[in-house]
Simulated scan of single mutants.
Amino acid sequence: MNSNIIRQDTTSISKIDYHRKNQHFSGVVWLTGLSGSGKSTIAHLINQKLYKQGVQTYVLDEDDIRQGLNNDLGYGERDRQENIRRVGEAAKLLVDSGTIVIAALTSPFRSDRNQVRHKFEEDEFLEVFVSCPIEDCEKRDPKGLYKKVRKGGIPSFTGFDSPYEPPLTGELVVHTDQESEEMSVERIIRLLQEKHWI
């Protein structure tokens, strides 16, 4: 960190103040899984349900982030790490503002996800593994990425020539090959209720 940058910790409105105003907790629901597993769909369904309940939320979706904040990053290992780091920093700012953040990113490496987790207080980060066999993800292929991979158009694609490391100690696993997206959403919202976020 640049030694000439001084952190401003003198804000008159704290995270607790935002919690009181919003009447709910703030934190990150980090959805991780293969491309095509259903992360984005689940994230936006959660967002819609919580919005209807008056909960302050925001979705950080990988595709949107890649078009804006992180449009200067490629898909090599270092750029992938930086992509996750930046999203983690953005999520931290939103959580400090009293927002429940729903982050939907492949985020294939445990070390990167753990680094993000450590930015937050112990009860502010929920890692949800959106589990789906790669065969089913490829059948869905909503963005046509797997077809491009098969034609050699995308190098270092997660699940093919780049590994995916599932969470070992995450808070929840949803199986989108075995349950509907709505059921997965309900299970995640139930988790938020059990953790007293909402």
Rank of each mutant, 00 (worst) to 15 (best):
N70G: 05
E77N: 12
N47D: 15
F120K: 04
T57W: 03
E62F: 00
H44G: 12
G74C: 07
L60M: 14
F129I: 06
N47Q: 00
L73Y: 08
T99V: 15
L60Q: 00
D96V: 13
V95D: 01
S131D: 07
Q67M: 00
F109N: 12
R86H: 07
K49D: 13
D123V: 03
E89W: 07
T57Y: 04
Y75C: 03
V128Q: 06
L69V: 09
Q53P: 11
N83M: 03
L126P: 10
V116M: 03
Q53S: 13
L60S: 07
D64C: 00
E89S: 08
N70P: 06
R78F: 05
L60P: 10
D112P: 04
L93P: 06
R113K: 03
C132A: 02
R66P: 01
Q53L: 15
I46N: 11
Q53W: 12
D64S: 14
T99Y: 00
F125M: 01
Y58N: 10
I84N: 03
K119P: 06
V116W: 04
S97V: 02
R110Q: 14
V101M: 08
R80N: 05
P108I: 05
H44M: 11
A90K: 13
Q115N: 13
V59G: 10
I46S: 05
D79Q: 02
Q115I: 08
K119G: 00
A90Y: 11
Y75H: 10
K92R: 14
A104P: 05
S111V: 15
Q48R: 01
L105A: 03
T57A: 06
D112W: 01
Y58E: 11
Q56P: 01
L126N: 14
F120R: 01
S131T: 07
K119V: 12
L73D: 07
E77H: 09
F109Y: 14
N83P: 04
V101K: 05
F129S: 05
A103S: 15
N114Y: 11
K92S: 12
V55I: 15
Q115W: 06
H44N: 13
D72Q: 10
Y75S: 06
R86C: 07
A103G: 10
H118Y: 14
F109S: 06
V87F: 12
N114F: 00
A91Q: 07
H44R: 11
